[in-house]
Amino acid sequence: MSGPATLEDQSKPHLPRGVRLKLDETRNEWLLLAPERVVKTDAIAVEILKRCDGIATLSEIVDNLAATFKADRAVIDKDVRAMLSELAAKRMVDL
């Protein structure tokens, strides 16, 4: 273990084994399931997490979101970095 990885443009974020995005039909919401943790996710978080497949780079994910939702790339970039950094610190996303 060499300490926390940092989020770079070329990082390929993905959910590690043991972390799952699940549509919970009982509560009718998307949840991020991790060891002893259940994290509620909003619609934006779900769109980000669905793109974290370990193949797309951070900058590709941001490009895709900006194009799909016709939004300001700089704003999206800031939001995506903030969310993924927070989840990486909780070991719910690997970079």
């Binding site: 273990m1 300490g3 926390p4 002893e36 990486a88 610190a89 070991r91």
Partner: peptide, 8 residues
């Protein structure tokens, strides 16, 4: 160890 291991 923040970012390496989550402590409860």
């Amino acid at each position: 160890y923040a970012g390496t291991i989550v402590s409860d």
